[in-house]
Design a protein around this nucleic acid. Structure first.
Lengths: 232, 232
DNA sequence: TCACCGTCTGGAATACCGTTCCATTACACG
DNA sequence: CGTGTAATGGAACGGTATTCCAGACGGTGA
């Protein structure tokens, strides 16, 4: 395979390519939700048949994987040098959070994917900052995993919530109705849920998410601590 | 076809019921994994047709929901009185963890479900112990949510791992291969992942999970007060 | 005792999905 | 200029959830 020769002659005006397919898949997912990605719909949008897509992509799994990776890669840019580790962790987490907010299907995908490319990306960013926090080598994996698991947990929850709200129109109305349902639970069995039901309608998912991150950060390194261990 | 008279007098002996259907669904899911639950397979196992099942259950969603709820309810029993809050939180979390270990599909389901019955069950148990820890009313929701999100995050990860290992036979062999793949990543882009790759093969998911719980617990209510406590 | 009717059954039919197959194109190269 | 091949796209194939409907069972009133 000699390189650089293949000058894309316009066989079609818009030649099919993996990149273009992934792009169309993302648009489809954004527009119609998780169930909106269909090889037939994708073929129609690309003005082709389903068979042609399979020449560029092995199947739906890879396509979803690639779409998720594209969004995550754009959402988690390299941390700017000179940022405090805590702030850098918050920045990474918020990047993922906002990406999921914009593309709920990414949340569902992250929550159900193993340690593959998109998740590894997040894990790496979080882990670097854990290291910068001065966490000893032996527990870095644990600390970074805790952060990662929390983030993907929220990812799944947000995706599920987005799916649930899709039916109801308004978000606060949805939360109010859910709070009402919570207060109607059995007081014997669900005292706590009933107690916090009132917090539901007016709580901000984003700050709640950040508060959870800070909780874990506090557990990892109780207070601001120099990056260098004092044993030098 | 067969003797028309003694056709299906079993109607009384083995009457179809929601309970029996859910039970069969759980067996099917345990045996054949997440994709093993099929209305056809279910009908065959129950010696009936797909149509009959729909008389007792509205659809697959409700069936999966009911199956998950049954497993979670059995896995998270009421905490025995007199347990220290921290230990009670660990017990709840471990209950969920072990249930997912035994039924990986539950993990996938929890990770993608919103605040419905199964999740609420876990949230309630965690929240009660958060309250018992002496966490102020205003931040109880946040603390309990952090624990919950972490737990469901791990749930999703474990389900994904179980799915991935299904192909390869051995678990440690799988982890070793993954660690090898990690060390072959670009050193510029993945320094942290490469660094911790060695921890992968011999790490215990269960203790790692508990360590994460303890991290969050420390963030929620530090056990020993640090030397400088300028908390307002 | 018998006709009846609501509960419950199960097999066939529908609509849609991912995927595969394959005849056909249109260009790059000999 | 002919031809091999990368690329295409439409038509199947086998699977899925779900719906439909023709019945069978079993209690009930006459």
């Amino acid at each position: 395979m000699a390189a650089t020769r293949t000058r894309r002659t316009e066989r079609r005006e818009n030649p099919l390519s993996r990149e273009r397919i992934v792009e169309a898949a993302i648009e489809l997912l954004d527009a119609a939700g998780e169930g909106g990605l269909t090889f037939r719909a994708l073929a129609e949008r690309l003005a082709t048949g389903p068979g042609a897509i399979y020449w560029h992509v092995t199947g739906k799994d890879e396509l979803l994987h690639a779409a998720t990776d594209a969004v995550v890669a754009a959402a988690v840019p390299p941390a700017p040098a000179g940022t405090a580790p805590r702030d850098a962790v918050r920045a990474v987490a918020l990047g993922v959070f906002d990406a999921i907010d914009a593309h709920p299907w990414v949340g569902a995908q992250l929550a159900r994917s193993a340690m593959d490319a998109p998740i590894l990306r997040i894990f790496e960013r979080l882990g670097r900052q854990v290291q910068a926090l001065g966490v000893p080598r032996a527990v870095r994996f644990t600390a970074a995993s805790a952060l990662l698991n929390y983030v993907v947990g929220v990812a799944g929850q947000n995706a599920a919530n987005a799916r649930a709200v899709e039916a109801g129109t308004d978000r606060t109305e949805f939360l109010t109705r859910m709070a009402a349902a919570w207060t109607e639970l059995d007081p014997e069995e669900y005292p706590f849920v009933r107690e916090v039901a009132g917090d539901l309608p007016h709580h901000d998912d984003r700050v709640e998410f950040l508060a959870g991150i800070d909780l874990i950060l506090t557990g990892i390194a109780p207070r601001e601590r120099p990056a260098d261990p004092p044993s030098a």
